[in-house]
Design a protein around this nucleic acid. Structure first.
Lengths: 161, 161
DNA sequence: CCATTCGGTTGCTTTACGCAACCAAATCAA
DNA sequence: TTGATTTGGTTGCGTAAAGCAACCGAATGG
């Protein structure tokens, strides 16, 4: 039956996964962040099959994370560029990298380091903090239905409260 | 041929995806963050097939994101609980949710809102900032090989610089 | 003008997902 | 204490998707 789709789930995580959750998608985006733009470059760097790459790029274009720009003088030579929506994924990629730096590689074994170009210092880690700068953990949070929630979702949170 | 595996890729994103990249995995973790612990609850809430849920839970246990705790008085009644490594995924889930709030639902249409339990105010958005609090964008960053990088990776960054 | 690169498509095989049926052990109700 | 139900799965099957290889037209480079 193929895969379940998540778009009807009324949950931001599920929505994001609908756009990004396929196997190669986020790695394509990562490479786009490194400045990669061409089909052949993604193919060579990732070792992804052409048909799958083609499908993923289309998917990302459909979701307006990449845009396909014709750069040939007579047409038919393309670049895939990050849109603003795509660039907005930087915090997602960053938290994933920071998590694996800490919990998979361990301190001192990071494969890449991201620095501020201006100050040449490492970019401070992304952490949940309140307005006063206190670190927040899972227990400190309360999740409530937002304005865009379905009635069903409101009921779920009501039950829990 | 089934799926390519990413663990040999010497990249934090790929490593994180190896642990979390499967279709249901991150939604299971999200539900774990909501306090969910039991097999049947995950099954009912997500509508996931039992065999797939079983496989994903094992995978998460293998990666030490969840731990399987026997809570039956005579054994054989289990709970799946977030480990510290699992709880450390909070920023990842948060940035995903914030991205979809902004770029999929749009302001004012968020399905859920996360508040600080103490102050009852919304948790400030996670953003990349330098030490002085300036927002950082893609162009402000430089990525360099870290101490755990393979020679190959060093070469890649050298070529680019 | 010829060779090569780019950006794919098509066809085939293998793997993984979704569904349904089934099951043993533990727990619950009477 | 016995019988029913819940829990946490496993097994088998059909379908959808990933991987591989071959091929291809248009654009580009020499």
């Amino acid at each position: 039956m193929g895969r379940t789709r998540f778009h009807e789930m009324n949950c931001g995580i599920a929505q994001a996964l609908e756009a990004l959750g396929d196997w190669w998608t986020l790695l394509i985006v990562r490479n786009a962040f490194f400045g990669m733009r061409r089909f052949a470059d993604f193919e060579a760097d990732l070792g992804i099959a052409k048909n799958v790459l083609s499908s993923r790029l289309q998917h990302l274009v459909n979701h307006q994370i990449l845009e396909k720009v014709n750069v040939g003088r007579q047409g038919a030579r393309y670049e895939y560029r990050l849109t603003d929506k795509g660039e907005a994924l930087l915090p997602v990629l960053t938290t994933l990298r920071e998590w694996s730096d800490e919990w998979i590689y361990g301190k001192g074994n990071e494969p890449v380091i991201v620095k501020d170009r201006r100050t040449r210092r490492r970019v401070p880690k992304l952490q949940l903090k309140d307005a006063d700068g206190r670190k927040l953990h899972r227990r400190d949070l309360r999740t409530v239905a937002g304005p865009g929630a379905l009635a069903e979702t409101h009921a779920r949170f009501a039950r829990r409260s």
